[in-house]
Computed example of a mutant assay.
Amino acid sequence: MPTVRMYCTQNCPYCIRAEQFLNKKGVQIQKILVDYNRDEMKKMIEITGRRTVPQIFIGEQHVGGYDDLVELDIEGGLAPLLSQ
């Protein structure tokens, strides 16, 4: 299973939902907290072009935020990414 990284903040409800969603699928997440780390926030913005959290990566592929993650699952694209 590829590494799943999630740029997030401690109190973001969408970050919490994304973590719960992935945990139900048996996925462990490497959380990168950006609320108190400006360097990580800058890195997230550079990589994704987005300022909102969560920003989720499966392996090196940027999935997007929580809504993007759920949409990817509904369309059948999440399971193949997680099984690589």
Score class of each variant (00 low, 15 high):
Ile47Arg: 11
Glu46Trp: 07
Leu69Glu: 05
Val70Pro: 09
Glu60Arg: 12
Asp68Lys: 08
Gly49Leu: 04
Thr52Lys: 15
Ile47Thr: 11
Glu46Ile: 14
Tyr36Val: 08
Gly77Asn: 05
Val34Tyr: 03
Ile47Met: 14
Asp35Thr: 04
Leu33Met: 08
Gly59Glu: 13
Glu40Lys: 11
Gln30Val: 12
Gln61Ser: 14
Lys42Trp: 07
Tyr36Ala: 08
Val63Gln: 07
Glu46Gly: 09
Pro80Ala: 10
Thr52Tyr: 10
Gly77Lys: 07
Gly76Ile: 15
Gly65Ala: 09
Ile45Ser: 00
Gln55Tyr: 01
His62Thr: 03
Gly65Ile: 01
Pro80Trp: 10
Ile58Leu: 13
Val34Gln: 03
Leu72Met: 11
Phe57Pro: 00
Lys42Gly: 00
Val53Met: 14
Val34Phe: 06
Gly76His: 13
Lys31Arg: 08
Ile58Thr: 05
Glu71Trp: 13
Ile58Tyr: 02
Phe57Asp: 05
Tyr36Ile: 04
Leu78Lys: 03
Val53Ala: 08
Asp39Arg: 07
Lys31Thr: 10
Gly64Leu: 14
Glu75Pro: 05
Asn37Gln: 08
Arg38Pro: 11
Tyr66Ser: 05
Lys43Gly: 00
Pro54Asp: 04
Ile74Trp: 13
Leu72Pro: 04
Gly76Gln: 09
Lys42Cys: 02
Asp35Arg: 08
Val34Pro: 02
Leu72Gly: 10
Gly65Pro: 05
Gly76Asp: 09
Leu33His: 04
Phe57Gln: 01
Tyr66Val: 05
Ile32Cys: 06
Glu75Arg: 12
Gln55Cys: 02
Ile74Val: 14
Met41Ser: 15
Thr48Gln: 02
Glu75Leu: 15
Asp35Gly: 04
Glu46Ala: 10
Glu71Asn: 06
Arg38Asp: 04
Gly65Leu: 05
Ile74Arg: 10
Gln61Met: 15
Ile32Trp: 03
Asp39Leu: 12
Gly59Pro: 07
Gly65His: 01
Gly64Ile: 15
Leu72Trp: 14
Val63Ile: 15
Leu33Tyr: 09
Ile45Leu: 06
Thr48Met: 10
Met44Tyr: 01
Val34Asp: 03
His62Tyr: 12
Ile47Val: 13
Arg50Met: 15
Val70Ile: 09
Asp73Lys: 05
Asp67Ile: 04
Ala79Val: 11
Asp35Ile: 11
Gln30Met: 06
Lys42Thr: 10
Leu72Phe: 10
Asp68Arg: 02
Lys31Ala: 13
Asp39Cys: 00
Pro54Ile: 01
Pro54Thr: 03
Asn37Thr: 02
Gln61Lys: 15
Asp68Asn: 14
Ile32Val: 09
Lys42Asp: 13
Ile47Cys: 06
Met44Asp: 03
Asp68Met: 07
Leu72Ala: 07
Gly64Ala: 09
Met44Asn: 02
Met44Gly: 00
Gly64Tyr: 12
Asp39Pro: 00
Arg50Asn: 01
Val53Cys: 08
Gln55Asp: 02
Glu75Trp: 14
Lys43Phe: 00
Ile47Glu: 11
Lys42His: 10
Glu40Ile: 01
His62Gln: 12
Pro54Gly: 08
Glu46Tyr: 14
Lys31Gly: 07
Glu40Ala: 14
Arg51Phe: 15
Ile74Asn: 11
Asn37Val: 02
Asp68Leu: 11
Val34Gly: 05
Thr48Tyr: 03
His62Asn: 11
Phe57Asn: 01
Asp73Thr: 06
Gly77Asp: 13
Leu33Asn: 02
Leu33Ala: 04
Leu33Thr: 00
Ile32Glu: 10
Thr48Ser: 13
